[in-house]
Nucleic acid binder design. Structure first.
Length: 387
RNA sequence: GCCAAGAUAGCGAAGUGGUCAAACGCACCUCUCUGUAAAAGAGGAGCCGUAAGGCUUCGGGGGUUCGAAUCCCUCUCUUGGCA
C-alpha cells in the first residue's frame, strides 16, 4: 500500500507496529523513527555531519523560535532552512502552537486555561503572545504559521493547534479541540501549493484525556486532506497509563480512516514510551529528551531507568566506556572518567559527546525496532527492553 | 626587632555586641526534566535527629557583658612597610 508520500512496507502480526517509508523532496525516512528536536535550526551541539553519522533521518525545527530569531526573512533570503543550516535531508517544522501556549503558561498554577494569565490571549482567529526574548507582541494565526513554515521550507509542516494544559476541564479541552479543528481547516486552506518545493502538512489531534473528545478529534482530523497526522497534547503531565490509553482510543480510528498515512506523536520519547507508541502504530515521534538529558550529563544506556548521571563522583576514575554495549563513536573512544571530567570542568565537548551518544542510543534502538517488526519480533524486543 | 593590616565553614568573601549555625559566589551532595525561554531548574549542605529540637562553632587561650564572630588582654601565624 502506498501513495506518493508514504508507503507501508510491513505490518507486525501481533501489534499495530509497522514499517513504512516517507518520501520527501529531500530524501526518504524509514519508519518508525525518532525525530530529534532542533528548535533553533540546530540539534544542540551537533553538526549535520554528526547527525548523519548517528543515523538521524529527519529532525524537528520550530516556527516560533525561528520566527523570533533570526526571523523568517533572513532564512528565506539565505535559501530556506535546509540551506541555511546545511541539512540536505528531510526536515519537519513544528507550528509554534505548543510554544505559544506552553511558554505563556508562566504561572504553573493556572493550568485550567492558558488565558488565566496575561502573556497569551487566544481568540477565535489566533493567539496574541509576547516574545520570550524581548517581550514584543506578536499574533499567530493558522495562516501565519503556515506562511512562516512555507517560507522556512521544511518537508513536513505541522498545523497550528492548541495544546490544552493538563489537567484541564472537559469544557476547556473541548473548546481547545474545537479551535484546533477550525484551525486545521484553515491551515489546509492556507497552504500555497508550489510556493516552494512540495511540503507536506500534518493535522493535529487533541482532546486531552477525554475519550469522546479524542475519538471525535481523531475522526475529524483524519477526515481532512492532510498528508499526515500528529497526536498532540500528550506527555504534558498525564500518567503514562493515560497516554497509552489515549493511543489505544485513537490509533485504530486513525489507521482505519487514513490507511496509508504517517502518524507522528508529538513530544514523546522516553524509552518505555517509544515502545508504547510504536506498538500502537506510531511512525515518527520527536522529543527533546535524549539531547536535553545529555546536556546535564544523563547518559542513556540499557540499564535500570535507561539513564545514569555521569557527573557522579564514582565515575571519576572509571576507564570503561559510557555504555559498554554501544557501538557509537563516543563509546568507542572515550571513558566514563573522561566524560565525567569534561562535565565537571564545564568543557563544551561534554555536551557534544553526550548528545552524540544519547541520540545514537535512540536511533540504534529504532534500528532494532524496525528490524524486529520486519521479523515479527516486536513484542519480544519490547519484553527484552522493558522487563 | 619595630610599625601597620589581617586571620570567618573545602576555597573566596560578607558580617563588627543580640534578629548568626553565620549572607553571597565557586566547588560539593541530592532530585527533576517527554511538540527545548534548558551547557537548565529545584533543594541540601557544622554535628545528632524524619521532625520538633538539642549540642558544638568564626586562628589558640583568657577576660568584659544578661548576651561576643563582633569589645579588651595575650599567644601563634600571614601580608606589607621600616630597620
Amino acid at each position: 500500500m502506498k501513495n506518493n508520500f508514504f508507503s507501508l512496507l510491513k505490518k507486525d502480526i501481533k501489534t499495530r507496529a509497522r514499517i513504512g517509508k516517507i518520501k520527501t523532496p529531500n530524501g526518504e525516512i524509514l519508519t518508525p523513527t525518532f525525530v530529534p528536536v532542533g528548535s533553533q535550526a540546530t540539534v544542540k551541539s551537533l553538526t549535520p555531519q554528526d547527525l548523519r553519522e548517528i543515523g538521524v533521518q529527519v529532525f524537528f525545527a520550530n516556527t516560533y523560535h525561528l520566527y523570533l530569531r533570526p526571523g523568517v526573512e533572513v532564512i528565506e533570503k539565505l535559501g530556506g532552512l535546509h540551506k541555511f543550516m546545511n541539512w540536505d535531508r528531510p526536515l519537519m517544522t513544528d507550528s509554534g502552537g505548543f510554544q505559544v501556549f506552553s511558554l505563556g503558561r508562566k504561572n504553573r498554577s493556572s493550568t485550567l486555561s492558558p488565558c488565566a494569565n496575561s502573556l497569551v490571549k487566544i481568540d477565535y482567529n489566533g493567539v496574541t503572545f509576547y516574545s520570550h526574548l524581548d517581550g514584543s507582541k506578536h499574533y499567530f494565526t493558522p495562516e501565519k504559521s503556515i506562511e512562516i513554515q512555507q517560507k522556512l521550507g521544511a518537508d513536513i509542516m505541522i498545523a497550528f493547534d492548541e495544546c490544552a494544559p493538563y489537567p484541564t476541564t472537559y469544557n476547556y479541552a473541548k473548546t481547545a479541540m474545537e479551535r484546533t479543528h477550525r484551525w486545521a481547516l484553515r491551515s489546509l486552506e492556507a497552504v500555497v501549493v508550489g510556493r516552494r518545493q512540495k511540503q507536506f502538512l500534518f493535522g493535529v489531534i487533541q482532546g486531552s484525556t477525554f475519550r469522546d473528545l479524542r475519538q471525535e478529534s481523531a475522526k475529524f482530523i483524519s477526515s481532512l486532506a492532510f498528508d499526515g497526522l500528529a497526536i498532540g497534547g500528550v506527555a504534558v503531565g498525564e500518567s503514562k497509563k493515560e497516554m497509552a490509553q489515549i493511543l489505544d482510543w485513537i490509533m485504530p480510528i486513525l489507521q482505519k480512516e487514513k490507511e496509508v498515512c504517517p502518524i507522528h506523536l508529538l513530544g514523546v520519547g522516553e524509552i518505555d514510551d517509544i515502545f508504547t507508541a510504536v506498538e500502537r502504530g506510531i511512525d515518527t515521534m520527536d522529543c527533546v529528551m535524549p539531547t536535553r538529558l545529555a546536556r546535564v550529563g544523563h547518559i542513556l544506556a540499557k540499564r535500570k531507568n535507561f539513564t545514569y548521571d555521569i557527573n557522579k563522583s564514582i565515575f571519576a576514575n572509571d576507564p570503561s566506556p559510557i555504555d559498554k554495549n554501544c557501538p557509537c563513536y563516543v563509546c568507542h573512544n572515550f571513558s566514563k572518567a573522561y566524560l565525567h571530567h569534561l562535565f565537571r570542568a564545564n568543557e563544551l565537548l561534554a555536551y557534544r559527546l553526550a548528545s552524540y551518544h544519547n541520540l545514537f542510543f535512540i536511533e540504534d534502538l529504532f534500528v532494532k525496532i524496525r528490524e524486529a517488526i520486519r521479523k515479527d519480533e516486536f513484542l519480544s524486543l519490547k519484553k527484552q527492553w522493558l522487563k
